[in-house]
Simulated assay, not measured.
Amino acid sequence: MSVYDKLTALGISLPPVATPAAAYVPFVRTGNLVFLSGHIARREGKPWVGQLGTDMVTADGKTAARAIAIDLLGTLHAAVGDLNKVTRIVKLLGLVNSAPTFTEHHLVVNGASELIGELFGPAGAHARSAFGVAQIPMGACVEIELIAEVA
């Protein structure tokens, strides 16, 4: 089953590439690697504002991370033209806007990792880092970037 068939089965449609909010590009391809800039969590088209451990719980953050994964896939599709050309999701880097006492960053970012794994199977098994940070641009609760290898 193609990645697009899996997306359809999950009821997911890919969004267009978001316009960068500062001086950067949404993606850079060098050789067989595609680097996607960080994407922030959005809800109803606006930054999903919040802080894990203060006004958000882990399950909310995980939902936000899954939404970011969908946005990342839209950008990856724009970068390569066909998600079936992806041979490997190499790495995700997740930043979680969190209170100093919050310790479940890894569980938040699982929202993205689990969807990527479901869509790409073994090629979706990736290296990953998840960090707690004091703030993310526009007050967003989560930001994630992605590196993929393509044919």
Rank of each mutant, 00 (worst) to 15 (best):
T30D: 11
T87D: 05
D60G: 06
V28Q: 15
L92Q: 10
D82G: 02
A41H: 06
I40G: 04
D82K: 06
V80P: 02
H39Y: 11
Y24H: 11
T58Q: 09
A78I: 08
T63V: 15
G38R: 15
G11T: 06
R88L: 04
V86L: 05
G38N: 08
L72I: 14
A79K: 13
I12A: 01
P15E: 11
A59E: 13
A59W: 10
H77K: 13
L33S: 06
G53E: 01
R43Y: 09
R43L: 10
V17F: 01
L92H: 08
Q51E: 05
R43K: 15
V25D: 05
A18W: 12
V25Y: 05
T30Y: 08
P16Y: 05
I12S: 02
L33E: 09
G45T: 13
G31E: 00
T54C: 00
I12Y: 02
L76T: 10
L10D: 02
D55G: 10
A21K: 15
L83Q: 04
G38F: 12
I70P: 04
L73F: 07
R43P: 00
A22P: 01
L10Y: 12
L76W: 11
A64T: 09
V86Y: 01
A79Y: 10
F27S: 14
H77M: 04
G53D: 06
V49A: 09
T19E: 13
A41V: 09
T19Y: 01
N32A: 14
L33Y: 14
L10H: 09
A41M: 03
L52K: 13
A41T: 07
G50P: 07
A65M: 07
S13V: 13
K85F: 03
L92R: 04
G31N: 07
V34N: 05
L73N: 06
L33C: 00
T75K: 04
I70M: 02
L10E: 01
H39I: 13
L10T: 03
T54H: 14
A23Y: 02
A21G: 13
P16T: 15
I40C: 01
K85T: 13
D60C: 03
A59N: 07
H39F: 01
T87V: 15
L33R: 15
A65C: 09
V34K: 11
A18Y: 12
A23R: 13
T63Y: 09
A65S: 11
F27R: 05
G11N: 06
A18N: 07
W48L: 12
I70Y: 02
F27E: 00
L36R: 07
L33P: 00
V34I: 11
A9H: 05
P20A: 07
V57N: 09
T54Y: 11
F35R: 08
